[in-house]
Simulated scan of single mutants.
Amino acid sequence: MTRIFPSALLPLALMLAGCGSPQPEAEPPLVGAKIGGPFRLTAADGRTVTDRDFAGRYRIMYFGYSFCPDVCPTDMQAIGAGLKLLEKSAPEKAARIVPIFVTVDPARDTREVVGRFATTFHPRFVGLTGTEAQIAAVEKAYAIVAQKGDPSPGGGYLMNHSKQAYLMDPDGKPMALLPSDEGPQAVAATLDQWVR
């Protein structure tokens, strides 16, 4: 059903719709969701990294793969640029956030590849990979579905995977989905809304 505004109220409605960041809700939308959990993966420098290494900091958790032709680079660009916007407007908040990229394609995304890919979008992005079993475990914990597509004639393949960017709190609990498909400003506004 289409809502029709009386013409006198339309300018007021448009003005209110264009106001800065949305009023904070009482609780973040993902509070209580069973998303997240312990993980043990490998960073670009070869170090073993666990979820405990990020304790006390907000985390952006994004899952994708470096050979992705379209969606992953677009999302990563929006997340990285959104974090840069927050670094300008609220540097204290931005400093408390760790952006993390976890591959869903560990066969091709070695630690070096995943590290280069992640830092292309923001210098603080942490790229993580692991064994097939480690990646499967973290996908399950974060409700990510990933499956290798049919091989192309040249032997390459695409990964079919779910597309979410989670904002996790300093205790590793889910807070909100980042609207990476809406661009950097929307990402920055969501981060600004929930990071304290």
Score class of each variant (00 low, 15 high):
54 F>Q: 02
88 K>Y: 02
87 E>L: 10
161 H>N: 04
92 E>N: 05
176 A>K: 05
102 V>Y: 04
173 K>E: 10
172 G>M: 11
118 A>S: 11
65 Y>W: 13
2 T>S: 12
110 T>E: 06
130 G>N: 09
12 L>S: 08
23 Q>K: 15
146 A>C: 06
31 V>F: 06
97 I>K: 02
185 Q>R: 15
4 I>L: 14
153 P>V: 05
115 G>Y: 07
4 I>T: 12
92 E>I: 01
14 L>K: 13
94 A>S: 06
155 G>I: 10
154 G>W: 00
161 H>Y: 10
52 R>T: 05
8 A>W: 12
191 L>S: 02
179 P>K: 04
71 V>L: 15
15 M>Q: 14
113 V>E: 07
1 M>V: 09
160 N>T: 11
6 P>V: 12
152 S>D: 10
11 P>A: 12
108 R>L: 06
79 I>Q: 07
161 H>D: 05
168 M>P: 01
178 L>P: 00
188 A>Q: 08
121 F>T: 00
175 M>A: 14
128 L>N: 04
40 R>P: 00
43 A>Y: 08
44 A>V: 03
140 K>D: 04
86 L>H: 05
146 A>W: 07
111 R>S: 14
71 V>R: 10
34 K>S: 15
67 F>E: 02
157 Y>L: 07
82 G>S: 09
44 A>P: 00
99 P>W: 04
7 S>R: 15
132 E>P: 11
22 P>A: 15
63 F>C: 08
138 V>M: 01
60 I>G: 02
14 L>P: 01
76 M>E: 10
182 E>N: 13
26 A>T: 09
192 D>K: 13
83 L>P: 00
31 V>H: 07
156 G>D: 15
68 C>M: 04
111 R>W: 04
134 Q>W: 06
137 A>W: 00
193 Q>N: 14
43 A>R: 07
29 P>R: 14
33 A>C: 11
146 A>K: 06
173 K>N: 12
43 A>H: 10
29 P>K: 12
135 I>E: 06
86 L>C: 07
38 P>D: 13
30 L>V: 04
37 G>N: 03
177 L>S: 02
165 A>V: 03
65 Y>V: 08
105 D>E: 11
186 A>C: 11
11 P>Y: 12
74 T>A: 15
121 F>Q: 03
53 D>S: 09
64 G>T: 06
164 Q>N: 12
104 V>F: 09
111 R>L: 06
